[in-house]
Design a protein around this nucleic acid. Structure first.
Length: 190
DNA sequence: GACCAGATTGTCT
DNA sequence: GACAATCTGGTCA
């Protein structure tokens, strides 16, 4: 089942947790790739100092203020893209960073894009999974309900969700907005 | 396996 | 001009 608009139009932290176990699919020119989400981080609006949306709207972060259910892709460290899902209740900003996947469909194409044949090294980090699925600048702002980039519920029941501090940030470390599946070998860091 | 430095560019102050 | 929601490859063990 394709996740509907109503799934995304809720508290960003709740969406971050409920995205675990869902299937992220990207139909690109080279083929379809997909992976099961095993690690996420939620970023809120003005009340979250670690968020891109903590201050005012800019050309880069404005997508986080737009309607829920669209993608937010940004370029970081001169090398990498990070894929986020815009999710928040009406009137505020927020997005969920997808940090790790378990490869599910077309692992061969992921290996080609990532230039490695180690399955455990394909999608265990935000920059890695964007590369493996072929997500970059052109995928910013796409509708996750009406485009070839979307998320499905395939009936996986998750158990053992860990909450922890987010990775790679300076402020807001006291907030436990990182969620991952405890027993998954595909998370970026335990 | 642990630790560390270097890559590389868009974005905002 | 500083620096970032990261990754890789080096060294040492």
């Amino acid at each position: 089942m394709l996740l509907p608009y109503s799934f995304y139009a809720r508290d960003t932290r709740l969406v971050g947790q409920e995205l675990l176990g869902k299937l992220l699919v990207h139909k690109g020119k080279e083929g379809v790739t997909a992976g099961i989400i095993v690690e996420t981080e939620s970023y809120m609006g003005s009340n979250d100092p670690a968020s891109h949306a903590a201050r005012k709207k800019t050309p880069r972060n404005f997508v986080m203020f737009e309607e829920p259910g669209i993608s937010y892709v940004y370029f970081i460290y001169g090398n990498h893209y990070c894929f986020n899902v815009v999710a928040h209740v009406e009137g505020i900003a927020g997005a969920v960073l997808i940090r790790a996947l378990e490869p599910f469909l077309n692992i061969k194409l992921m290996m080609k894009r990532r230039k490695t044949d180690r399955v455990l090294n394909l999608t265990n980090g935000p920059g890695k999974l964007a590369q493996a699925l072929g997500i970059e600048r052109g995928q910013n702002g796409l509708s996750l309900i009406k485009s070839g980039l979307y998320i499905e519920d395939i009936g996986i029941k998750t158990k053992g969700i860990i909450k922890s501090s987010r990775i790679g940030i300076k402020e807001g470390k006291d907030l436990l907005y990182r969620y991952y599946i405890k027993q998954s070998p595909f998370v970026s860091v335990q």
